[in-house]
C-alpha cells in the first residue's frame, strides 16, 4: 500500500534528496534546499511540472521566453545531462555546483570546454570559434568588419592551438586558460555562496518538523 501523507510534500520527477546532492557537490544541505526553492520557481514559471523547460530557462535568463541565444542553448544542453529536453532538479544542482566558488577549477575549465565545443567533437575548431564570435556580435550592439572578426579569431587560435593542428583540444584549452584565467571568470557565481540568504528554506524546514 502506498503512503497517504496528508501533509506529504509533493516531489517532482527527478527530485533527489538534498543530502545526496550535498555529498556530491560543493553545496551544503541547506544550500541544496534553498536551490530547491529557486528550482520550484523556475520550473513553474510557464508549465508547472517541476521540470525546467528551455522556454522557462530563457525566461529566467532574458525575461523573454522566446529569445534564442546560442550560449544559453549550450548551457541548457549541458545542464540537461539526460538529454530529454528538460532540466531536472538533480541535474540543476549538479551543474550549478560547477559554478560554485569552491568548485574545483578543473571542473570549471572542463565545463567551459564542453560549452565551446559546439559540435561535441572533443575539440574546438576555428569555425566554431568564429560562429561563437558572430553569435556574440549578433546579440550585442558591437559591429565589427569581417576582417576584424577574422583577425580576432586567427589571433586567438594561434595563441591557443599550441600544436598547430587547426583545433583546440582539452590539453591546449587547459594551458590557454592557465595563461588567461579571466576566460573562466563566468564559470563562478559568487551568488551561490549566499543562496540560503536569497532563498531561505523556511517552508521546507517547517515541513520536516511537521512530520516529526
Amino acid at each position: 500500500m502506498g503512503c497517504f501523507c496528508s501533509k506529504g510534500v509533493k516531489r517532482t520527477p527527478g527530485y533527489e534528496e538534498p543530502t545526496v546532492l550535498a555529498a556530491e557537490t560543493p553545496f551544503t544541505v541547506s544550500e541544496v534546499e534553498a536551490l530547491y526553492e529557486l528550482f520550484k520557481k523556475l520550473s513553474s514559471s510557464i508549465i508547472d511540472d517541476g521540470l525546467i523547460h528551455k522556454e522557462e530557462f530563457n525566461l529566467a535568463l532574458f525575461r523573454n521566453r522566446n529569445k534564442r541565444n546560442l550560449f544559453a542553448d549550450r548551457i541548457f544542453d549541458l545542464f540537461d545531462v539526460k538529454r530529454n529536453g528538460v532540466i531536472e532538479f538533480g541535474e540543476f544542482v549538479r551543474s550549478l555546483g560547477v559554478f560554485h566558488p569552491n568548485a574545483p577549477i578543473e571542473d570549471k575549465i572542463a565545463f567551459a570546454f564542453r560549452l565551446y565545443d559546439l559540435r561535441n567533437t572533443g575539440s574546438i575548431e576555428q569555425e566554431e570559434l568564429k560562429e561563437m564570435v558572430l553569435a556574440l556580435l549578433h546579440e550585442s550592439d558591437l559591429v565589427l568588419s569581417e576582417d576584424v572578426i577574422e583577425t580576432i579569431v586567427d589571433k586567438t587560435f594561434s595563441q591557443a592551438d599550441a600544436k598547430g593542428d587547426g583545433k583546440i583540444d582539452q590539453e591546449e584549452w587547459k594551458e590557454f586558460v592557465s595563461k588567461n584565467p579571466s576566460l573562466i571568470r563566468n564559470m563562478t557565481l559568487p551568488y551561490l555562496k549566499d543562496i540560503t540568504l536569497a532563498f531561505p528554506s523556511f517552508v521546507l524546514r517547517s515541513e520536516v518538523e511537521d512530520s516529526e
Binding site: L38, L42, A60, L61, F62, N69, L70, F71, A72, D73, R74, I75, L96, F99, L115, Y116, L129, M132, V133, A135, L136, E139, S140, L142, L144, V148, T151, I152, V153, K155, T156, F157, Q159, A160, F176, N180, S182, L183, R185, N186, L189, Y191, I195, A198
Partner: peptide, 26 residues
Amino acid sequence: VAPVTMNAFELISTSQGLNLSSLFEK
C-alpha cells in the same frame, strides 16, 4: 579595451546567455 585586441573567448564570455546570475534575480 578595443575589441580587436581582445581574445575571442574573452569576447564570447561577455554573452548574456552565459550570465547565469540572472537566474537568481527575483
